[in-house]
Amino acid sequence: MEPRTPSKLEKIMAAGHLGVTSEVGPPRGADGAEIEHKGHLIKDYVDAVNVTDNQTSVVRLCSLASCIRLKQMGIEPVLQMTTRDRNRIAMQSDILGAASFGIHNMLCLTGDHQTFGDHPMSANVFDLDSVQLIQTVKLMRDEGKLLSGFEMKVRPQIFIGAAENPFAGPNVELRALRLGKKIAAGAEFIQTQCIYNIPKFKEWMKIAVDKGYTDKAYIMAGITPFKSLGMARYMKTKVPGMDVPDNLIDRLKGVPKEKQAEEGIKMAIEMIQELKEVPGVRGFHIMAIEWEEKVPELVKGGGLYPRPQV
């Protein structure tokens, strides 16, 4: 695949390297320095950094402003955008604003329902869904048009990303079809939900390869290290769409409490090593939740360091 945008992430994967991204969750306050601090921690170990958009419907410093901060530090941002809080007018406007600052990657999401967050009483929008947001960005970039049909003089240059959860319902077949749907809509890279159930992920990848989806989009495997047994259990039971097999829980159980974090990192590194060999995997999306300082260790341990220069 030839790169179509100035995105560094796209260029790296187009050149045949495994791409590496990570994410930064903005603070629940106006402290911009916190984003910069987190950015510094991972800067040299990833190709681009996602910034979450009011993740789990909790109000946080906005993704766009955070992305601009990262960009000004010389870090390549991936603007996450959910359709929950903004209609097509606001989203297209934000896309143009992001492009004007040279933001060249976006992750298009529907977003968690607001019942999970700190404002469950709020109205939601959902004018578009994730697939339609992908279509919108593609239309803006490739045809230079807004959804209204208005033609722009300067088009946004954006490498279009989407998320997919191989482990959500109803079955792996449908989840693969939905991946296909996102790619048909225009998604060029896919960051998956955190992978713990490797056999199921491989099943999903196989369908993706067989259907030719992997020829059209870069699949980046989602990795989240366990910090503790408690976290693993929480992910298994409380987080929607998360599939944590018992053998992983048992492995953490077999380790004394003070060694569980270390074991969690070890397990994540082993996972990266194993997933590298899965046909169709073109990169990793490392989500070290409130544990950004561990990203360098994971990237090195996974044999993904140093990052290629393009």
Partner: peptide, 26 residues
């Protein structure tokens, strides 16, 4: 659909239930 999606189901759908509640069918 809790998110009135026209291209669902979202990643929060689990065992046929919506992410907002186990009592709400997806």
């Amino acid at each position: 659909c809790s998110k009135r999606m026209l291209n669902g189901p979202c990643g929060g759908s689990e065992a046929g239930k919506c992410e907002i509640s186990k009592d709400t069918p997806c």
